[in-house]
Nucleic acid binder design. Structure first.
Lengths: 337, 337
DNA sequence: TTGAAAGCGCTAACAC
DNA sequence: GTGTTAGCGCTTTCAA
């Protein structure tokens, strides 16, 4: 179990280190008998290559790092799972970078690509984790793909849903159900996704000829706690909303909790709409109406693209839009008013 | 942004590679002026050490791998977050190993320790991910700590709660509330934690003089889906339970969903007790009575111990029991019968 | 078909 | 205080 190296098995078989290496990696370039002997010896002594040395030599670490704000968020962890799966299938490991939204941490993790500990990064953030000199071509950057967000670089490969259209779909659903006073608990307005959703909401409302009441909008983070705070504030409005569109299911959970706490019923008094469709969404009480994001597909696609880039294959088109889906469940209700 | 090495900055400053290396790592062993010049040059060219080479040379990768059945599980991901935090603070990165319960995957990940890609492993599983020759002393094994579970080796450092006592506390709570027909949806009986909880349940029931009805027990996994299946089956019993003790909050969520689906009210018709206290537990409807595990502390402790071992400091005592806590909320109810 | 030799980029004795 | 040297364990020309 100690450190056995090529050297040891070379000594044992009488071949040179080079031959042993070949026997193990390029079976064809070596005599049949040799290969067999070497492999047998390797197994006998329990040889495991020192991947550090391999990486140093081949300049490939076999790791990718995924930079993500919060791995405890269901939506994120399911994406990670998908990434992990395809990475593994293609011989890579994933290094986890939970940043808690800190830009410094994002940059720290991205540096692993320069320190050769990682071959590429999947970035679930809206900003590039390193400085890019204006005009520097994309292929001079470390292999990177942007997931769920848009970091402001058009040539950066990225995969996400059509947040604009998704927000329209969500808003239309509420509108269809007769809601007019629709409140919003949004995410970080620094992010492209949030801005797109905001835009979608506005456009849908405008298209329906309903005026948007800005005092019915609260900006938050994607957490449950912020959903509680947001809904609490909203319901204290002198003319409270009949529906709340939350930009994440976690926010929606928090909102539903707060609503119930204040004695309002969902969906009888107020309808709640989520976003993401995390696994719990359909199992809570009442089951949450929401926009489903294809998490598994997002993760898998990000990983495939990144690994392709690492292998030298750039995607033809940087942008990959994946389909979302409106899931109507019981947290929204048709009203007469 | 290309590969600048010590060599380049040596050439630029006129010093030798060794001196440059010292200037960067052991500032004291070098003249003040030298250090300044070197550091300036390093910054100027944007030098980043090749950590692969550093690791190869120092035989330390700076990574730890955490082997965990499912990172999408809230309970787990919060533990990971805590691990990540202390690892980071001590200069380590964490490699994520989501195994989906597969032993092969567990072993695969554990091998990273032999391939020198990781310096140690935190194992959230009930079995050792490599073969240990009988009698082989613990310090001949790769640095490892066992979290939340007991892999059957007494000398393996491990940290978890007192599952036996926790189950007693949970059961007593139900008993106190007047329940007698208490059902169980347990986890994998292969695991020590599950067995301990089962034992605690039996002992608590016996202590109260209540006979245990084995037909009211279902063995499952820790997932929501299994909670649904379990509760469904339980309620079809000709003499259904008045309370269900679920071995995870996810199971409990599933159970509550199924119960409601079948037209039973929680807690009016049946009380539901969880285990873990994941973040959502207190926010669902009705808020879940459960056993709180100190996830942050578990993760942090695992990491601290592992890193200490890597640094050559073995813990005095392998076993570390952390405190659990009964959280009484609204999913359990006192009954008269 | 096999082996000798030259490093990958860095650290750490040890000498100067 | 600084430089020389010898590798860490492996891959990979290039020659034999």
């Amino acid at each position: 179990m100690a450190k056995v190296g090529l050297k040891d098995i070379a000594a044992q078989t009488g071949y040179s280190i080079a031959t042993v290496s070949h026997a193990l990696r390029n079976p064809d370039r070596v005599a049949d008998a040799t290969r067999k002997k070497v492999i047998a010896a390797a197994e006998a002594v329990g040889y495991t290559p020192n991947n550090l040395a391999v990486s140093l030599r081949t300049a490939r670490s076999g790791n990718i790092v995924v930079i993500i704000p919060d791995i405890a968020d269901s939506h994120n962890s399911n994406i990670i799972k998908a990434i992990e799966k395809v990475a593994r299938a293609r011989g890579y490991s994933v290094l986890l970078g939970d940043t808690q939204g800190s830009e410094a941490r994002e940059r720290e993790f991205a540096r692993m690509t320069q320190t050769r500990q990682a071959d590429g990064v999947i970035l679930m953030s809206h900003r590039l984790p390193f400085d890019r000199k204006p005009g520097l071509p994309i292929d001079k950057l470390p292999p990177i793909v942007n997931g769920c967000e848009y970091a402001g670089h058009d040539d950066l490969p990225r995969v996400y849903i059509d947040d604009y259209q998704a927000a329209i779909d969500a808003t239309n659903h509420l509108l269809d159900y007769g809601h007019r006073r629709i409140a919003l608990i949004s995410g970080d307005v620094e992010t492209h996704s949030t801005r797109e959703r905001l835009r979608g909401f506005d456009d849908a409302m405008a298209a329906a000829g309903v005026e948007v009441d800005r005092s019915l909008q609260v900006r938050a983070g994607y957490t449950l706690e912020e959903g509680i705070a947001g809904a609490t504030r909203l319901m204290r409005h002198r003319e409270p909303p009949t529906a709340i569109f939350c930009f994440s299911d976690e926010i929606a959970f928090g909102a539903m909790y707060a609503l119930r706490d204040m004695g309002h019923s969902v969906p009888d008094d107020v309808s709640v709409m989520g976003f993401d469709n995390i696994p719990f969404a359909r199992y809570i009480t009442p089951p949450l109406t929401t926009i489903a994001q294809p998490t598994a597909e997002i993760g898998a696609t990000c990983a495939e693209i990144l690994l392709d880039i690492i292998d030298g294959k750039r995607p033809e088109t940087p942008l990959r839009i994946l389909p979302h889906e409106l899931k109507v469940r019981e947290s929204t209700r048709r009203i007469s008013g």
